[in-house]
Amino acid sequence: MVFDFLGDKTKVVIAMAHIGALPGAPLYDADGGVAKLIEGVIADIDNLQAGGVDAIMFGNENDRPYVFTAPPEGVAAMTAVVEAAKPHLRVPFGVNYLWDPVASVAIGATTGASFVREIFTGVFASDMGLWRPDAAGALRLRRQLGRDDMKLLFNINAEFAHSLDERPIALRAKSAVFSSLADAILVSGPLTGEPVDRLNLTSVREAVPSVPVLANTGVTIDNVREILAIADGVVIGTHFKVDGQTWNPVEAKRVKRFMDVVAKLR
């Protein structure tokens, strides 16, 4: 399936540009400040693009523990980082502010992002407490900001959480497309860097033939063949990092090896 925001590319690879902890977060480096955040993310972008990824998604994975409502200082800083990094981009980009869909849409619309990823639907018991995202608020904001062209990628089985919705994942995916206007569906593993359940991925792919389906976590050079035999694309953060560790910087050679494999699969 072709992603209209990525031209004619199929079996797409969206790579994560993990921004360092933002102001207000416990791990924020106040001495380095926003300038250090910009420096780090630009270095990762350069390595990702050198390896040949199709798109880049900015995320605040370092803002542990995560929140459901983005603080003003976090939104401002992430917007500033993305704007500073944009001149270095040669591929389309998206954003994801964990775990606030309205803030993600606001940042994406303001910075000119092509897409936004978030948990938009469902109810979850999570490490952060009871999780009730606001899909209606996010889609209404997208409309109000005149960005109907910005695609919304719905992650339907949240990391660090368990769905309280007892419907099968395939039905939840179909419902998200029907009732909440999802532009794409993402299937995740239980934690960042953990593989998706391939039975879940297959059932979702079959349930929503009209929209792209991506594997959102745990894709590696060892399993990408099997994953892309099912999914239309993948989102990758951890595997592209030095030693395959989530919090390390991106390693260009790892990216290039992976993308060489993907090129043969297309």
Rank of each mutant, 00 (worst) to 15 (best):
L191R: 15
A30W: 04
T246A: 15
H88T: 04
D29K: 06
F93V: 01
G244H: 08
A207W: 01
A17Q: 03
W131P: 01
A182V: 04
K241Y: 07
N155Y: 01
F58Q: 09
N200E: 15
A263R: 14
D127F: 01
A43Q: 10
Q245N: 11
G244K: 08
R142K: 14
R198K: 14
A77E: 02
G32P: 09
D31P: 00
I227F: 05
L48R: 13
V34I: 15
A136R: 14
P23Q: 06
R257Y: 08
R266Q: 12
A109T: 07
S114H: 13
T79I: 00
P71I: 03
F258L: 14
R147W: 01
V81E: 02
G32S: 06
L37N: 09
T121Y: 08
V211S: 11
T202C: 08
R117Y: 01
E251D: 15
P72F: 01
S180R: 03
F68Y: 07
E73W: 02
D8V: 09
N248C: 09
F115I: 06
F115A: 08
V208H: 09
N47H: 15
G244P: 02
L89I: 07
S180W: 05
A125H: 12
A215G: 07
Y97P: 02
M259Q: 03
E206W: 06
V34T: 10
E39H: 13
V123I: 14
L22P: 00
R205L: 12
I156R: 04
I156M: 05
V208F: 12
R143Y: 09
P65T: 01
L214T: 04
V13Q: 06
D127N: 13
A85Y: 00
F160C: 12
K11L: 05
A184W: 03
L27Y: 11
I185K: 05
G237F: 12
